[in-house]
Amino acid sequence: MGEKSLQRILYAEDEPDIQTIARIALETVGNFTLEICSSGNEAIEKAPGFKPDLVLLDVMMPGMDGPTTMKKLREIGNITDTPVIFMTAKAQRREISQFKAMGALDVIPKPFDPMRLAENVRTIWEQHHASL
């Protein structure tokens, strides 16, 4: 069975500075096709059309937070099974377990190294597919 390749990433993050650096990290360094959304609501609006292979969600966003956004994305037909990775400064072991119990693939802690982010995302993706 061929492994699904990771090409398209949708990233929800409300902080403009992080958006800028993430675009470099994922597009320029990682060569991913990236859609950045500034809110959970925007992610829900854009995900069906963008059809991401993977969704990155900031946990703390105004309005709809990351976990709520993931729950809403799961209700969208073609996004139901799309893997989600949370990105957060709240990356203690207990919180990571909680996020995974909610259904997230993994958690990438903030701050992140922009030169390593793409590699980290790929590693999580490959580990997930190796376990299927």
Partner: peptide, 8 residues
């Protein structure tokens, strides 16, 4: 700020 400052 904690997140962005560390990233930058």
């Amino acid at each position: 700020l904690a997140g962005s400052a560390g990233t930058f």
